[in-house]
C-alpha cells in the first residue's frame, strides 16, 4: 500500500496515478484522498491514469466509477486514462462497461479533451444528461 496517495496538481487539474497491484484498502484510501483534494483545491478536472495498474477487477472498477460520480458532484470533470488492451477486453468480458465514465488513451489526450471541454461551447453540453 502506498504511504502517500500519488496525486499531482497540474494547474487547475489533478493527475492521479494508480500503480502496481493495489489492495482494496489502498483503492478506497485513494478514492477518499482524491475527493478530499478535489473539494479542498476546487480542482476543475481529475485524470486517473490506470496504465500502471496490474489488475482492474470489478471491485476496482466500481470504486473508480464511484470516484468519477463523486468528482462530478463536486463540480469537476473526471477522465480515466491508459486502460490497456488486455484490461479493456477483460472489463468488457467481465461485464463492467463503465458507460458513464469518460476515457482517454493517455494523460495528454485526456488533458486536451478536458481543456477543449472547458473552452468549448458550454451550450453544446447543456443537452447531455449522462454527466453525473
Amino acid at each position: 500500500m502506498p504511504d502517500v496517495v500519488p496525486i499531482m496538481r497540474m494547474g487547475p487539474d489533478l493527475l492521479v496515478t494508480l500503480q502496481g497491484d493495489l489492495d482494496d484498502r489502498a483503492v478506497e484510501q485513494i478514492e477518499q484522498e482524491v475527493t478530499d483534494q478535489v473539494a479542498r483545491t476546487s480542482a476543475r478536472a481529475v485524470l486517473v491514469d490506470v496504465s500502471g495498474l496490474a489488475v482492474l477487477d470489478s471491485f476496482v472498477a466500481r470504486v473508480l466509477a464511484r470516484l468519477v460520480s463523486m468528482v462530478r458532484l463536486l463540480g469537476a470533470d473526471a477522465t480515466l486514462v491508459g486502460i490497456s488492451p488486455a484490461v479493456a477486453i477483460t472489463l468488457v468480458e467481465l461485464g463492467v462497461s463503465l458507460r458513464h465514465v469518460n476515457t482517454a488513451l493517455n494523460a495528454e489526450q485526456g488533458m486536451g479533451r478536458l481543456r477543449r471541454l472547458r473552452e468549448g461551447d458550454a451550450s453544446r453540453w447543456a443537452g447531455h444528461d449522462d454527466r453525473g
Binding site: 490497456s84 479493456a88 477486453i89 468488457v92 462497461s97 463503465l98 488513451l105
Partner: peptide, 12 residues
C-alpha cells in the same frame, strides 16, 4: 460490439 466497447474504454 464488444470490440467497440473495449476500444471505448481505451479512449477510442
Amino acid at each position: 460490439l464488444k470490440t467497440v466497447e473495449a476500444a471505448r474504454l481505451m479512449g477510442t
